[in-house]
Design a protein around this nucleic acid. Structure first.
Lengths: 225, 225
DNA sequence: ATTATCTATAGATCTATAGATAATGC
DNA sequence: ATTATCTATAGATCTATAGATAATGC
């Protein structure tokens, strides 16, 4: 076996730095997804990858910064992909976008990303869901995801021109709740259904979710209240 | 002013015990709803009501027991009320229950309880939502809420006799996600909608939710996948 | 010379327990 | 006599920092 078939034993400092940072972020992402900001110590993170606690400080200063770095690392990818999918759909649909079309661009694109992205992306999904209803997570959700959500809302308004803004926003509120419950993968649906449904089965969710939610939106027409 | 118009200055030991326990549970409920199990210290709880930390130990042994006591205190009430509402609906609907009717018994009954129950019930709602996707909360959800959920699922199956169990359970999964997002009252919908919608506005949710979700269930008929 | 990593440790905080004090209950 | 509450404190753990060590980079 020649030397060319294996990685060089020596890594440049830049590579070493990048690798350490990624390892720390991966470990933190997993642990935060399970236990939240306060349920994870810097020691937990360091122990998980066999480094010293102080190295986490060296790279991230403190726990809050580490938390925000975990959130930010993948936020741009999911947000960017969905914005792109929504813009593509808008062009295709022309003057007559539908609720289901917009929701497919928004939801299916994201579910695919996590499901096809492997373990780390699934951890990130759980992380987002876990922290979405915490004080720490709330402002990060606003900061990173407001643009893509408002893009979706804009298309929904065009698809439902006679709807009030309140109806659109409350509909989105239901959609995001259902999505977060999916991303969290708590195993509750598995236990409730005696194993018939699996929390990890994002394709099963994708098969149903956009259609389900689109019908929900349409049902709000002519509410007699 | 005579003595009969005011409460007696002396409380019996039983009263004193009950009052201290309630105060501790109220404080813990509020703090856990904001920061979760790990984000709250026993000192935080004690300080909030001006007692010594050790008194929390005296009544609840440790933090985990306090947490479970907070969960359990009101779980029976919400579960019982909804089971009763579902049974009443079943009797009224006879052989032809509807999805929307079942969901109204399940959702509206609960939203009313929190909204009309005042501050403490709203805190409990946020507490449940906050911990529903945590390892600590998951098993408590199972333990306390499985019966009422399975009751709802049973009626939904009768309302949708040609549906697969998977479709029913995934539909419930969407419903509970949207409900938890409502109970959490994170303020995100407020900010997204520039104040048009309010997280606290449970009547607005009640006006839309059962109808929205019922239409979602009905849309899953004849899925071509 | 610079930077990645580790050693040692200070200082703060948290949980939990033992035992004292003060009130109620019989 | 019993029980609600407080005082004092042990022991564990956590964050954060200062400074040493070992590797890469020029």
């Amino acid at each position: 076996m020649t030397n060319t078939t294996r990685k060089p034993a020596r890594r440049s400092k830049a590579e070493q730095r990048a690798e350490s940072i990624e390892q720390i972020l991966d470990a933190a992402e997993f642990l935060f997804s399970k236990n939240g900001l306060h349920g994870v110590t810097l020691r937990d993170v360091a122990n998980r990858i066999g480094i010293h606690t102080t190295l986490v400080h060296y790279y991230f200063n403190d726990k809050q910064h580490l938390f925000e770095a975990v959130f930010a690392r993948r936020a741009g990818v999911t947000s960017g992909r969905r914005i792109e999918a929504l813009e593509t759909y808008e062009r295709e649909a022309g003057d007559s976008p539908t609720v289901e079309g917009a929701l497919r661009a928004f939801l299916d694109t994201d579910l695919d990303l996590y499901y096809e992205g492997g373990k780390h992306w699934m951890n990130y999904a759980a992380f987002c869901a876990r922290v979405s209803n915490t004080p720490e997570g709330a402002e990060l959700m606003d900061k990173h995801f407001d643009p893509v959500v408002l893009k979706l809302v804009g298309i929904l308004k065009r698809a439902l021109p006679d709807y009030s803004d309140e109806d659109i926003f409350w509909g989105y509120h239901f959609v995001t709740g259902a999505l977060m419950n999916t991303l969290a993968r708590t195993g509750r649906i598995d236990r409730l259904s005696s194993g018939l449904c699996k929390s990890d089965d994002f394709p099963a969710v994708k098969d149903r979710m956009a259609r389900f939610m689109a019908a929900g939106f349409l049902s709000l027409k002519d509410r007699d209240l």
